[in-house]
Structures are given as C-alpha cells and as structure tokens.
Amino acid sequence: MLSSPPRLRTTTNYFDVEAALDRCCGDVDFLAEMVDLLASSVLTQMTAIEVACAARCPRELGEAAHALKGSISTMTSSVPYELARDLESLGKSGTCEGADIVVSTLRASLHQLLKETQQWSAHRESAPVP
C-alpha cells in the first residue's frame, strides 16, 4: 500500500501554510528554504525591537518593527503580524509608551509561530516521498 503524501496543511494558530505556499508559487522546497531562514532573521529583528524599547527610542522601534513585520508577512497575517504593526505605529508616532507589554506578547507569539513553522518543516522532512 502506498504511503500518503506529505501533509502540507497543519492545524495551527499563526502559521498560514496555504497562504505561505501560494506566496512561494506552490513550491514546497522554496517555502522550506524560507522557513529555514525565518528563525535567525526573526530573532535578530526581535532583539533589535527589545533594544530599541529598552533604550526608549521610538524611531528605532518603528524601523525594527517594520522590518519584522515584512519578514513574517509571508508566513502569517494574524497575531504576530498585528503586534509588529502596532509596535511600528507606536514607534512612528514618536513614543515607546505601552510598548513593553506589546513586545512581551509579540515575543511569545513569535515563539509560537516559529514552533509551528519548524513543526511543518520537520513533518515535511520525515514524510515519505510519495
């Protein structure tokens, strides 16, 4: 009996596999490549956000949040994206007031997003080739 093909859809909260695949022209290998690169990029950008927030620098906060928003937009349009967008707006409006709590929630949601993308990647690698 033939094994079932790798499942590309996963029941996740943040990682929108279907939309991400569409953005990669349906190319699973291309998406896997972008998933592999996501963690290091996102963690660097998250650190930049935290540094800007700690330094109370709205301009840096806005720019760092903008960069993060762009990076994760291929994978999600839900909570992590919305939080990055909120931080960007906050920074661009010239304040860091209230940013700490948003940064903390963003970090947790990014952790979840990365977990989901890595699960998808692991599942893909372990799935037998049909």
């Binding site: 022209c25 291309f30 972008m34 690169l37 996501l38 990029s41 960069a67 762009g70 990076s71």
Partner: peptide, 18 residues
Amino acid sequence: VDDVGYTRHFHVRLLQKF
C-alpha cells in the same frame, strides 16, 4: 532593493523562479 535581508532574499528567489 530592500534593507531587510529576509524579504530581499525572498523576492530575489521569487524573481529567479520567474
């Protein structure tokens, strides 16, 4: 042209695919 490496790489790869 993009100052965010991740999105720059994404668009480069996409255009190469085309």
